[in-house]
């Protein structure tokens, strides 16, 4: 995980070649000392493309989780704090959204919009906020009758201030866990979409579309498929393990 962040941040300094530079003299070269991880069908350096691909993946991961957490937090706070009909309405909506296989929903929306990096981030964000909303709602419900919230209200704090200033910080730790796991699944989703050709569009290198380009030449140039997948696996595994570790630290019930 640290590796992928490092690669993404310093991509221009690490990559030995331009990730989109075409070199007809060096097509389908297996890994060698000049091209560490080989070259693809247009003579582009696989290692450089992987390094730049890290940027795309992390970008998608963080921004889409940012979107989903924002939506989830607001709806969860409102549902938990006000209760009653508002709560019933929001939670019904959560149930409905949970019924759609998320991959179906994302594909359907993408089919109607243009596939682009921004659209993908928005769509992944819009279809994955339900878990966070449920978590925050539960936290809010247990926190809203505590003394410190009452004290804030007696001091004349506005509802918004109570929600975001007093309740939210106290209920944030499970969200942190779910956000970390969310980054992992967003990266996985993006790579899946790009692999199907409806995600990040070439020539922008993303791990998913590198795999798509590599799949047809699997037999002659397996390195085109092996390395991008390995990067996805390592990165996603990193975030999942981090999420699990955070849960062990932050959730006292889970500790036992």
């Amino acid at each position: 995980m640290a590796l992928s962040c490092f690669l993404a941040l310093f991509a221009p300094y690490i990559a030995p070649y331009d990730p989109t530079a075409i070199n007809v003299k060096a097509i389908f070269l297996p890994p060698c000392s000049k091209y560490w991880l080989g070259t693809d069908g247009l003579g582009r350096d696989v290692f450089s493309r992987l390094v730049y691909g890290a940027r795309i993946s992390l970008w998608v991961g963080f921004l889409s989780v940012g979107i989903s957490v924002s939506i989830g937090v607001v709806l969860g706070l409102v549902a938990g704090y006000f209760g009653g009909l508002v709560d019933e309405f929001i939670m019904r909506f959560v149930d409905i959204m949970l019924c759609f296989p998320s991959f179906f929903l994302i594909l359907a929306v993408i089919a109607f919009l243009e596939p682009s990096l921004v659209n993908i981030m928005i769509v992944i964000g819009l279809t994955s906020w339900m878990g966070v909303a449920r978590l925050i709602r539960a936290e809010t419900m247990s926190l809203k009758n505590r003394e410190f919230v009452l004290a804030a209200r007696l001091n004349g704090a506005s509802t918004a201030r109570i929600l975001f200033w007093h309740i939210l910080p106290n209920g944030l730790s499970p969200v942190l866990v779910s956000a970390t796991l969310g980054v992992a699944s967003a990266i996985l989703l993006e790579s899946g979409l790009s692999f199907l050709g409806i995600g990040v569009q070439p020539p922008t290198p993303s791990w998913g579309n590198m795999l798509m380009e590599g799949k047809d030449v699997l037999e002659v140039a397996p390195w085109l498929s092996i390395f991008p997948g390995l990067m996805i696996l390592i990165t996603v595994l990193g975030y999942n393990l981090l999420g699990e570790a955070l849960r062990d630290i932050l959730d006292p019930r889970h500790n036992k």
Partner: peptide
Amino acid sequence: VFIGFSVPGFWLALLLML
């Protein structure tokens, strides 16, 4: 199981095919 959870299914499919 964590590797299984994190591996892109399509990549695993490609490797198995290979």
